[in-house]
């Protein structure tokens, strides 16, 4: 509590009834007492050991970091540069997961390693359980591989839940609730931090909602099936292929794309990261521009979740303007 505010409040309260005047000495003592009381509270909070929080992907780590602030050490167990959805814990990774006070999970089948590991259930938080009835089932899955990461299949449930920012807000709330359960004495502080994060996410949601109005009549392609929730929330007409930005698709894929474009005349393909120039060139020849919308599943090299998402929105905005300019010509 601000001591000045308290003092003013007390003075106002005393004004309504005749009271002895507050001498400067008394005022000083009172202020000192309040400052001391605040210091004691802060010291008591700091005496608590910091929580160890491990998140299964970067957006959750970002949410936890914003909400817990100095009261937790937030870790991502996987190295940078790899997709956390394809990560498997090794012996050091499993020890990190086992030592966590809180294990923040995306849910929706994102953590496929859960079935093979031995972890505390009580410390796990499925942040998407609040909207489990609205998860998207993937009916037709294709097993494929790219680069040296081996084969994988996008089966079961679509898991990039945070790209629907309304869902991301719910996940942030789940993180705050879990932190509050672990440290009930800091609950109000976590709530405060959550409010700030929630406002940022709500602003992103509104901005993308507004931007999506410009995309309503525009068919889109996605380079990878990770934008299901983005498409549903912002009503995007999106068809996915299974391409990687750093790997030139074989001829059969280009033929398949040409066939798809006849049915679905997309002018824009959304990528997880900047595709190779020769891919962009060949797409441009087909009349399809490229735009990056980074899901930001792992820690970005620059900026944070919020800045990456703002850049994504900016990219979409610029891409729409370019397409409009081309169409007007």
């Amino acid at each position: 509590m601000n001591p000045e505010f308290s003092l003013r409040y007390c003075s106002m309260h005393f004004e309504s009834t005749p009271a002895p005047p507050i001498t400067p000495m008394l005022r000083t003592v009172f202020t000192l007492l309040l400052v001391l009381s605040n210091l004691t509270t802060v010291a008591a909070d700091n005496l608590q050991p910091r929580l160890t929080v491990v998140a299964s992907h970067y957006p959750l780590a970002y949410f936890a970091g914003r909400i817990a602030a100095d009261h937790a050490d937030v870790h991502l167990p996987m190295p940078g540069g790899i997709d956390p959805a394809n990560w498997r814990p090794g012996s050091s990774g499993i020890r990190m997961l086992q030592r966590a006070d809180l294990l923040l999970l995306n849910g929706a089948g994102y953590e496929t390693w859960l079935a093979q590991t031995s972890l505390s259930r009580a410390r796990q938080v499925d942040t998407s359980s609040g909207f489990s009835d609205r998860l998207i089932r993937i009916e037709q899955a294709i097993t494929h591989s790219h680069g040296g990461s081996g084969q994988h299949t996008h089966t079961g449930t679509a898991h990039t839940t945070w790209l629907d920012f309304s869902q991301a807000r719910q996940q942030a709330h789940a993180v705050a609730a879990a932190l509050g359960r672990k440290r009930p004495e800091l609950k109000s502080r976590f709530e405060e931090h959550l409010q700030a994060l929630d406002s940022d996410l709500a602003r992103l949601d509104q901005n993308l909602e507004a931007l999506s109005l410009q995309y309503q009549t525009l068919p889109l392609m996605a380079s990878h099936p990770v934008y299901q929730y983005l498409a549903r929330r912002y009503r995007l007409d999106l068809v996915s292929v299974h391409w990687e930005p750093d790997e030139m698709p074989p001829g059969s894929e280009w033929d398949a794309l040409a066939r798809t474009l006849k049915q679905h005349p997309a002018r824009l393909m959304i990528w997880e990261s900047q595709p190779r120039p020769e891919i962009t060139r060949r797409l441009t020849q087909l009349g399809v521009a490229s735009v990056v919308f980074d899901p930001c599943a792992n820690r970005p090299d620059q900026g944070d979740f919020l800045s990456v998402m703002q850049r994504n929105l900016q990219n979409l905005k610029q891409a729409r303007e370019s397409i409009s300019a081309v169409l007007q010509k």
Binding site: P89, S91, I94, R95, Q98, A115, Q116, T117, S118, L119, S120, R121, A122, R123
Partner: peptide, 24 residues
């Protein structure tokens, strides 16, 4: 059991680690 059982019964390893994976 799940790993919570070790916390619940205050069981700690004297040697090595708790099971990390299935088959441990």
């Amino acid at each position: 059991i799940t790993a919570d059982y070790f916390d619940f019964r205050h069981l700690v390893p004297a040697l090595g680690d708790l099971p990390g994976f299935i088959g441990d």
